[in-house]
């Protein structure tokens, strides 16, 4: 695991996240969010979980980002006046960040390097998914179906 790659991916991801949180134009923020998601996928590749990285790209960049852009374009009429930035939110976020960093840096056992592990194959993930995690898998399938039907009902045209 190389330190240069880690630093580069960190800068890319955090810059994308900051842009997504603070840019005034909604469409720019959505595109910065895509950069952040790609950085997250690169983190997963760096950590040796290639399958999760691919799922991240497929689901987030392929589906969620496109969904967000579509929603922005459908609700475009009142975007111009997105004035006002609530500074109390920034204060709370900085306070939470300080607390988290304090707790992380105070824990000396976290400062360890990654052990050597055998590569994680998709075959192994499939085996675990079909044996130990079969009930969560079914529940997620049910949840996705319910979410799909719920979203369709929510956006259906009302009869007047």
């Amino acid at each position: 695991m190389s330190a240069v790659a880690f630093v580069l991916i960190s800068i890319l991801t955090l810059a994308g996240a900051l842009a997504a949180a603070t840019l005034p134009r909604l469409i720019h923020a959505a595109l910065s969010l895509v950069v952040t998601f790609l950085g997250m996928a690169a983190f997963f590749f760096l950590l040796g979980a290639e399958f999760v990285g691919l799922v991240q790209v497929f689901v987030y960049v392929g589906a969620v980002a496109v969904l967000i852009v579509f929603t922005i374009l459908l609700t475009r009429r009142d975007i111009e006046k997105d004035r006002g930035f609530n500074w109390s939110g920034a204060v709370i976020a900085i306070a939470v960040f300080t607390g988290l960093i304090w707790a992380i840096l105070r824990t000396p056992t976290l400062a360890m390097v990654a052990p050597q592990i055998p590569p994680l194959t998709v075959r192994r993930i499939g085996e675990v998914l079909m044996t130990g995690f079969v009930w969560p898998l079914q529940c997620v399938g049910l949840l996705l179906t319910a979410a799909l039907i719920g979203a369709l009902i929510l956006v259906r045209e009302e009869k007047r």
């Binding site: 939110g89 709370i92 976020a93 939470v96 960040f97």
Partner: peptide, 10 residues
């Protein structure tokens, strides 16, 4: 915390 900032202040 960046996500928290976006959720709280926008």
């Amino acid at each position: 915390c960046t996500g928290l900032l976006a959720a709280l202040s926008r």
